[in-house]
Simulated scan of single mutants.
Amino acid sequence: METTQMHITQNSFEEILEREARLFAARSSGGGQSDRPVRLIISDFEYRWDRLRYDAYRVEEGCDAEPLIRWPFHRIAAASWLQLRIDPGEDIPVIEDVVVVTENEATESEMAEQFFNALCQASDACLVTWGGETKDLAVLRRCASEFGLLLPPQLIDGSPHARERVDLCRAVTVQAKSPHLPEYAAATSIPAKPSPSKKIGTLVEAGAWEKVREQVLADVMTTSVIALRHFCSHGIVEIDRACANVAIGKAVEAAIPESAFAVKVFRPWARDAERASRLRGKVYRPD
């Protein structure tokens, strides 16, 4: 057992060194644009409150207990991620994988392990979240230590400015007050959450897994659009943003054909935006 664990740790250390070498080479190539593919994994999670353990904690601590159920008691109830690759000279990203999994399909440890495996298999990928540094990553680290899982390379550096990750909420905010994802999406004309944000906990506890799946998947799709805009505006990639959104919609519909958000909301929006991008002058739409 110790030999196996040592072998895994050594392999992980070698992967980290290899990744750092690739990052150094990309930064040293100059010109802003990398001659290597840019791979992103955009993720989101929804949670169930562990009320039983929280109540036990409150009994033990009495009046000194935290009045709110904070992240150590948040259990992953749904996970979704989208993996894409942008090849040098290509206008449209390749959608490599789309995943949605919920508590009725897998345990928290299984969901965390599946996500960690995806990150390890794409060790050169940048992990992209919206507000992940404030909770998601803390919960994932708790999962790793609680369930004996090995952290993937993207989660090892604890700095909020780690090169292996981008928290878009932090990145777009700078020093302004942090916006909610649907708030930012509405302001920038991107479709977002099919259910109000504050209802997701109720949906989880009610076992409304179809709606929970829609919510976590929609968050990933919305964040993917923001991510591509962000990377374009920083000169990291050059793509046809409108066609990229169409590609995301097609890939998600192919992977999750039962998603009403993908089929009835996101894809029509992406198609309309792509058609409008080919027209000159102001485009008028009926109210």
Rank of each mutant, 00 (worst) to 15 (best):
M1F: 14
M1P: 13
H7Y: 15
T9M: 15
E15D: 15
I16D: 14
I16K: 09
E18L: 13
R22E: 14
S28F: 12
V38S: 11
R39H: 10
R39S: 12
L40P: 11
L40A: 05
F45E: 06
F45G: 13
W49C: 10
L52T: 07
E60K: 11
G62N: 07
D64S: 13
W71P: 14
A78G: 15
A78D: 08
L82N: 05
I86P: 00
I86Q: 10
G89E: 08
V100I: 15
V101K: 14
N117C: 12
N117M: 14
C120D: 10
A122E: 05
A125M: 15
V128D: 13
A144Y: 06
E146C: 10
G148Y: 07
L151G: 14
P152D: 13
P153S: 09
L155A: 06
D157A: 15
D157V: 12
D157C: 11
G158S: 13
P160T: 08
L168D: 04
Q175E: 08
A176C: 04
A176Y: 07
A176K: 08
K177A: 08
S178M: 07
L181Y: 04
T188I: 06
I190T: 02
S197F: 03
V204R: 02
E210D: 10
R213G: 09
Q215Y: 14
V216A: 10
T222E: 05
L228M: 13
L228P: 00
L228G: 01
R229S: 04
G235I: 04
I239N: 03
R241C: 01
A244W: 01
V265A: 12
V265C: 04
W269S: 02
E274H: 04
A276R: 14
K282E: 01
Y284A: 00
Y284N: 00
